Amino acid sequence: MQDTTAAVRQRVRDVLRKYPGSQRAFADLIGLDPTKLSKSLTGTRRFTPIELTRIAELTNVTVNWLINGGDDIETVAAAPQRSARSGRGPGDAREAGRYQQILDAAWKLVAERGYHSVRIADVAEVCGTSAATIHYYFPGRDDLLTETLRYSVRLAFDRQVAELHSIEDAHERLLRLVELQLPTPGLLRLEWSIWLQVWNESALNPDLQVLHSDSYARWHDTIARTIRQGQQQGAFTDTDAEELTVTLTALIDGLGIQVLAGRPGRSVARMRRVLREFVDREIVRH
């Protein structure tokens, strides 16, 4: 694939110039030593996928824009459909920073406590602000759930673009996509918690069904295009890519739910093994 390192560095410099704080403060927020940030900006080291994802979150852009120069450019992962795209808050840098702080707090609270257990006052307390400020961005709890879903879609898309854009081999990329869907402790488990709640709410709330459908379509399309590329490379069987995608995503969903629900005998390690065996048995050409 085309080496986009120089272009990435320039785009990071562009967003950094608009950042209201110092470069050192920016480095701290993305969990990067200031010296390493300077080296990344001058080209003596590369930004890691995690760093690119965090930079995108903090600066109100997408990883796809940082790497490829546009939000909707065709890349290794399918872009979110229109209803699933986050508005990403106001354009002003300071206002955008406040919006992101509130969204981060709301997303984590919903993931950890459950949608129906989180009050606007809880989000305000975590952010050290007033309920009125929260209501400015999220007028009601339904708005909060909608944006947490959109945020999860954006996180997954950004992470996949950052992780996969340099992997040309479709088999390797598919295995990496599987790995990125395992509910390991931390961010991925929190994302799974959000998805479980959205599935439940969508079954009861027709207004959420379109958003849920568009959000899931992004993930489905990412798997399908990876399988098709593997078929073009001669690495995968000629079985219908849509059928393989339906089966693989259903398997991921079912196993993930069982792991989160704590079913005896279901673990991340077993989920990984079952999924890799399915890929090798049903998708890889032998």
Score class of each variant (00 low, 15 high):
S267A: 02
W65G: 03
P183F: 02
A241C: 04
D169E: 15
R141K: 14
I120L: 13
E51G: 07
R113D: 04
V161E: 01
R285L: 08
F26E: 04
G186N: 01
D280R: 08
T129E: 02
P49N: 08
R119I: 11
R270H: 11
A203I: 14
T237Q: 13
L29R: 14
D143N: 09
R11Y: 01
R176V: 11
H116N: 10
H220G: 14
V268C: 06
F278T: 06
E277K: 09
E163G: 00
I252V: 11
G97V: 02
V12I: 09
Y99W: 07
T42H: 08
E191W: 11
V63W: 03
P183A: 04
V63K: 00
A124S: 02
A241K: 08
T42D: 12
R263M: 10
N200H: 14
L188Q: 13
R270W: 11
Q181E: 15
K39Q: 15
R159Y: 12
L174F: 07
Q100R: 07
G69E: 05
V118Q: 01
F47E: 04
V279K: 07
L175G: 08
E277A: 05
A27Q: 03
E282R: 05
A79T: 10
A121R: 11
R189W: 13
V110A: 02
L177I: 12
A241T: 09
G43V: 08
L16C: 05
D72W: 12
E277S: 12
V126C: 01
Q231L: 13
L155G: 07
A156D: 06
D92E: 14
R189Y: 15
T222R: 07
T148W: 02
H220P: 10
W107R: 01
S202F: 00
A84I: 04
R94I: 15
Y99D: 03
Q229G: 06
Y19T: 05
V126S: 05
R218I: 06
M1W: 14
R94A: 13
M271F: 10
K36Q: 13
F157R: 02
E51K: 11
I283R: 01
T148R: 00
L109T: 01
I194H: 02
M271I: 10
L37M: 04
V15D: 07
T222E: 08
L66D: 01
I67A: 00
T247M: 15
C127A: 06
I227A: 07
D240L: 10
D92C: 07
G70C: 05
L177F: 11
A25P: 04
G21E: 13
D142I: 03
Y19V: 01
Q23H: 08
V12S: 08
Q258F: 08
V178P: 04
V210T: 12
G128L: 00
A121I: 13
T237I: 09
Q197W: 07
L196V: 15
E277C: 01
V8E: 09
I252M: 10
R173Q: 06
L255M: 04
R154N: 11
F157Y: 13
V118S: 04
D92P: 02
V178C: 10
H135S: 15
V279E: 02
R189I: 14
M1F: 15
L251T: 07
G89K: 09
H220K: 14
E95I: 10
